[in-house]
């Protein structure tokens, strides 16, 4: 009996195809795996380095990055925050100079309205956070120091609130562990 007329031939063929496909995928994964992991580590390191140019190394504990300069002096903290924007979650990296003052923030990902809400990624909005004390990270109309983007109050206040609330939480967590 020829193989191609056997009743089981379709199943055998499908099994072979699936087997070959799995082999190919595993091979590709083995090649790319290292690079993908490096990339993720580098991405965070790159963002921290941009925020703290003096940074030499960092430690990660309880989702808080503690940053050290070359002379082992502590130069700040960094952590992630999530805000509820107009189009969904806004993911923010927050850098603190010390327990009371913001060093800088940057937006990691967002899905705000292009041309309106997505101006939260622009430097004219983000630079307003540099060196501001955590308690003053509020919109100006709420007595804070940050100008909202015209026409995008929801996106602006989502960032501002996420930064202030998360920063206060993390500072509390820091002082709790240091005691």
């Amino acid at each position: 009996m020829k193989l191609s007329t056997s009743r089981f031939y379709p199943i055998i063929l499908l099994t072979i195809v699936v087997f070959l496909s799995v082999v190919l995928i595993i091979a590709t994964n083995t090649i790319t795996q290292g690079r993908i992991q490096d990339q993720q580590a580098q991405q965070i390191q790159g963002m921290l380095k941009k925020m703290f140019p003096d940074m030499d190394k960092y430690t990660l504990q309880n989702e808080i990055y503690t940053l050290y300069a070359t002379d082992q002096a502590r130069i700040g903290y960094a952590f992630l925050a999530t805000g509820k924007g107009y189009g969904g979650d806004i993911s923010i990296l927050i850098g603190l100079e010390n327990e009371t003052t913001v060093k800088a923030i940057s937006i990691i990902s967002q899905s705000e309205t292009p041309g309106l809400g997505d101006r939260i990624t622009g430097s004219s909005f983000l630079n307003q956070f540099d060196g501001v004390s955590i308690d003053s990270v509020k919109l100006k109309r709420n007595g804070g120091q940050i100008d909202a983007i015209t026409g995008s109050t929801i996106s602006s206040s989502a960032v501002v609130n996420a930064v202030r609330i998360t920063a206060l939480e993390k500072v509390q967590a820091l002082s709790a562990t240091s005691k």
Partner: peptide
């Protein structure tokens, strides 16, 4: 054979998509 045509096609296509996905990621 005709009976497994579509499943075979889907497996082949999905394999290439997974590969390009990993390559782009890396």
């Amino acid at each position: 054979p005709n009976i497994v045509r579509i499943p075979v096609f889907i497996v082949v296509i999905a394999t290439f998509v997974t590969v390009i996905n990993l390559l782009f990621h890396a």
